[in-house]
Simulated assay, not measured.
Amino acid sequence: MSGEHMQIGEVAARTELSLRTIRHYEDSGLVMPSARSQGGFRLYTEADVARLMVIRRMKPLGFSLDEMRALLDATDRLDSGDELSSKDREELLHRVRGCEQAAQQRVGDLRAQLARAEEFAAALAARLTR
């Protein structure tokens, strides 16, 4: 589908995000439709869908909109093909590394929380079989 535009309904189906959520991310400046149809409908590209998928993956890990924006800005600049000074490039990579470390920490926290929940469910199941 490269080069083709999708309307918001198709993007919502592909990303498993609601129309309202996609519009909220637009209002927050996290993702902007690449174009608008003559009728004013939002039109998105594969790159826009990929951006929404990054946001979708960050949300359950508890990243704030500002943290999402900072990561997306860093990756946009790194992927832009623009000439970056070594200092700017290192600063952007540092931002991405920080986000990766935060994600790893949050994944570990979620694993621990899941283990406690599984222990609790098992204890309840054991009680029912007594």
Results as ranks from 00 to 15, higher is better:
48 D>K: 00
49 V>P: 03
67 E>L: 05
33 P>Y: 06
56 R>T: 09
65 L>I: 15
37 S>C: 11
63 F>P: 00
37 S>Y: 03
54 V>G: 03
37 S>I: 10
34 S>P: 00
61 L>D: 00
38 Q>P: 14
46 E>A: 15
54 V>I: 08
60 P>S: 07
42 R>H: 10
47 A>P: 05
67 E>Q: 11
50 A>C: 13
44 Y>S: 11
52 L>F: 10
50 A>V: 06
43 L>Y: 14
45 T>C: 11
37 S>M: 09
58 M>T: 04
58 M>W: 02
41 F>S: 14
50 A>T: 09
55 I>D: 00
41 F>L: 12
42 R>M: 02
51 R>P: 03
51 R>V: 02
60 P>N: 01
59 K>D: 00
66 D>M: 13
40 G>W: 05
33 P>K: 02
64 S>L: 15
36 R>G: 04
38 Q>E: 15
33 P>Q: 04
59 K>T: 10
50 A>H: 14
48 D>F: 00
40 G>Q: 05
36 R>E: 08
57 R>M: 11
57 R>K: 14
59 K>L: 13
45 T>R: 09
58 M>V: 03
51 R>F: 07
67 E>F: 06
41 F>E: 07
49 V>I: 15
64 S>H: 13
67 E>T: 07
39 G>I: 07
43 L>E: 14
46 E>D: 11
